[in-house]
Structures are given as C-alpha cells and as structure tokens.
Amino acid sequence: MATDPKDNTTLQLLHFTLQMADNALINGHRLSEWCGHGPVLEQDIALSNIALDHIGQARSLYQYAASICNGINSENRQHLFASTSLNQKISKGEMIDEDDLAYLRDAWDFRNVLLVEQPNTDWAFTVARSFYFDSFNFLFLSVLQNSSDSTIAAIAEKSLKEVNYHLRWSSEWIIRLGDGTTESHQRIQDALNDRWCFTGELFQATDADVAMNAQGVGVDISMIKQQWLEQIQSVLNEATLSLPTGVWMQEGGKQTRHSEHLGYLLAEMQFMQRAYPHMQW
C-alpha cells in the first residue's frame, strides 16, 4: 500500500467518498424495496422518490470515487479493493466507472453504516431507520457543503435540498405514529429502541473522517452529535415518544465489517451485472 503521505491523503479521500456513496446507495436500495408494496399509493410514491434521490446522490459520489481511483498510479491501484471481480478489471489496466463500484464490489469493500443496511422489517422500522439517518444526513451535509473540495461541496449542496424533504417525511411519520393509536405508538417506540444501537456509529470517526476533517474536506462529526440529539429529541417530544436509553452501540460498517443483511442485499442488487456483465436495458 502507498506509503508517501500524498498518496495516503488520496486513499483517505477515496474512503471518505465511498463512505458517503455507500450510505446513499444502500439506503436508497433498501427504500426501493418498498416500491409496489407501500401501504397506500402516495407513500409508495414517496419512498420511490426518496430512494431515487439517494441513488442519484450515490451516482455522483461514485463518479467522483471512480475518478479518484483512476488517478492513482497503476501499481497502487491493484491494492485498493479486496473484491475479485473489480480487481480483475483494474489489473487489466481498465478505467473503472460508477457502475463498477456499485456492482463489482463485495460486502467487505462497502463502507456504509450498519444502520442503513438493516432490513425494512415493517413500516415502523423503516420510519425509525430513516428518521435517525435523515436527521444525521441533514446536519452532516449542511456542514459538508462548505467543504474545501469543490466536487464534494457541490454534491453536498445539491443533496441537501433533497434531504430536506426526506427529513420532513420521516419526522412527520414519527409524529403520526407516536401520537396515533396505542398500537402505532408502541410499535414505533419498539422500532426506535431496536434500531438505536446502530446510531452510535454515525458519530464514530474513521481514519478517513479524521484525515478529511483535518484537510477541511470533511466534517467534525463529533460536533454535530449534540445537534442531532436535540433535533430528534424535539420531534420525539412532539410525538409523545421517549428517547431510547440503550448505551451499547454496534459498530463496524464504516470499517467494512457488516451484518449478514448486506450480503443478501448485494446478492439481489448485483445479480444481473455479475451474471450478465455490461448488460443494459
């Protein structure tokens, strides 16, 4: 692996970009699983729209990540990933693109947080996951739009306008379910409690987070934790729900260690490109 500090910065920028891209893609794919299964037509459409925003944001980020990979010298480029299909392409000296990053990496090369790969389970669990993630994403992108990296700043500025709608959607549902019937109240509280252990990782800085924050490219995520807590607390208050109290937090996704759920998700998402390379429709 690269030893000179300039190369190391490039590697951290790549990992940082992939963390965000993978969050967007995996979250978008999970939400797209509701397409055709929504409880009412309007909500089916809402989730498909939100999923599409995430996948569009992922595309911009993967395009940037691919350009970073392609700019690394050919010897170091061989060691960026641990996925056979992608490495075969790289070792032939071919340039990679956004589709290669989405479809040819295995689970152990993904850097998304564990939260977004958790299954939809039911409507309450889907809302709880989105609420935690959207609240984080909104604060994160608000800072990131001032990144010293102009490509990342532009993607953040663009995405933030869309995430505004996502946060509104998930916050409204928290209130509707929490301040609804006895059953809806209980089920959203259970879902919030259950998914709570995946929120610690959102604020855990990886080497890439630390390096990019030091360069003015990234975000000091420890700084937004308090705002995140205040924001979710105020929505939970209105929803007559309680902030979960669990202290044990599950982590690993940002370091490429995932729950088994990601493997199943990728098997479905990547099947077509793996079975029929380059196919289009």
Partner: peptide, 13 residues
Amino acid sequence: MTSAFGATACKSL
C-alpha cells in the same frame, strides 16, 4: 396537500 411526493421528483399532489 395530499402528498409531498408526486409522479416525478419535482411535483407534489
């Protein structure tokens, strides 16, 4: 408003 999301990203119902 009946839904913030419509048939395309740019529209609501």
